[in-house]
Amino acid sequence: MEAILSSFLTKYNYWVFIGLVMIGLYALIAKRNLVKKIIGMNIAQTAVILFYVSIGAKQGSTIPILDSSHGHDAHHAVQAIDYINPLPHVLMLTAIVVSVATLGVALALAIKVYQQYGTLEEDEIQAQIDKT
């Protein structure tokens, strides 16, 4: 019990991300409404972003924008330990864009489905398909 508690305290970001992945995935699979499914998918993708950004954190460091901005001697003073890891942030900029793009296409498809069937409820759509 104590081990779990201390694990939670030292890694709570990771606990939260796993919780969010599970919530998102559950909504994606169990919900009947297509828009709710899309929202679930987005929650899961956001959870992945939280995970990556958590990797980048370093205790006692600041954002990776160097202090002594101008001048050529800047790199003498730079210590990696003072700045958080920029790479996960770069990766997540990409992942955010990907999730926005996926969301856009998903909504477009949902609109197309709605135009065709007049509903976004999966079971009602299924009933219409079975009829024909």
């Binding site: 995935l25 998918m41 993708q45 992945v48 996926t102 998903a106 498809l109 949902a110 065709q116």
Partner: peptide, 19 residues
């Protein structure tokens, strides 16, 4: 369009797991 939306859901989950 419905099939493609389902493909999108599954495909996104697959890609997210890989990620």
């Amino acid at each position: 369009s419905l099939s493609s939306l389902n493909y999108l859901f599954m495909g996104t989950v697959g890609a997210s797991l890989y990620l």
